[in-house]
Design a protein around this nucleic acid. Structure first.
Ligand code: ZN
Ligand code: ZN
Ligand code: ZN
Ligand code: ZN
Lengths: 132, 132
DNA sequence: ATCGCACACGTTATAGCATAACGCAATTGA
DNA sequence: TCAATTGCGTTATGCTATAACGTGTGCGAT
């Protein structure tokens, strides 16, 4: 599941996300890529689908946006559950892992015999700078 | 923040959610209430906004749906973070709380001086029955 | 070689989710 | 009574995501 060479469209989308200073919606990405020939949402969504699969991009469910993984190189998927803190003022996102949280949630799912496939942890609020 | 008497529209929406055996989208709720005079999405969204505020309904960010709180009576907001396990096959939702998870996440936010406002924890996968 | 398949891509159309903006009516409290 | 608040109804619009169709390209099997 590690990333093979990206196709042209995948590379363009990834590049936009990496250079952005916060999460972007698919349509914002589309707008930024019109000069590179992008014309339709599907071009973005199809690239995102692969980038998510490769683990180099994350989807923020609570704000319908996408962000480049903060841990380039390491395969983020292998770190267990990924959590995000999202500043609702400046849009900055912090990505982190907490194995103890993973364990607690896994304990719960084991107890319920629930087969977890994908777990979302997103904390929305204000970053230190914006809360001041 | 505990629930005052619900208005007519709020009661209708809440009733639909309580009787449902799983989460519903706003537009599904709208369809179920057409016979009761609902004509537009805003009627649903405005009711949901209040029900969420009162803590008697939860929003599932990862599936753009809404579900009645599984803990009627108790003020769910006071239990700390609410977590959900969502079966992607049958749609069933289990709601639970884990104070240890809360503590770990609060420790992290304190360390980063991040002011958390709303935290989402959603586990998607297969329930025991559907995983068999 | 050429057939079949998998995959990326482009385009158009459509489906699904959410809110803006206007105006009206009922309630409340000064 | 007057102003402020809240709920409500309607129309229009915007944002998010996918369906369905067809094209081209690379690559292994026959
Ligand atoms: Zn990551
Ligand atoms: Zn901030
Ligand atoms: Zn609850
Ligand atoms: Zn199930």
């Amino acid at each position: 599941m590690s990333a093979p060479a990206l196709t042209k469209n995948q590379a363009l989308v990834f590049d936009v996300l990496e250079k952005a200073d916060g999460p972007l919606s698919a349509y914002t990405i589309l707008d930024k890529l019109r000069d590179h020939g992008f014309r339709a949402p599907l071009q973005v969504y199809r690239a995102l689908e692969k980038l998510l699969e490769y683990g180099v991009v994350h989807r923020l469910e609570s704000i319908n946006s996408f962000v480049a993984c903060a841990h380039p190189g390491e395969n983020c998927h292998s770190h267990g559950i990924v959590a995000f803190a999202i500043c609702e003022s400046c849009g900055q996102v912090m990505e982190f892992h907490d194995h103890e949280v993973d364990h607690r949630l896994m304990d719960w799912t084991r107890g319920k015999k629930f087969k977890a496939e994908k777990t979302t942890i997103e904390i929305r609020g204000l970053c230190e700078a914006c809360a001041a």
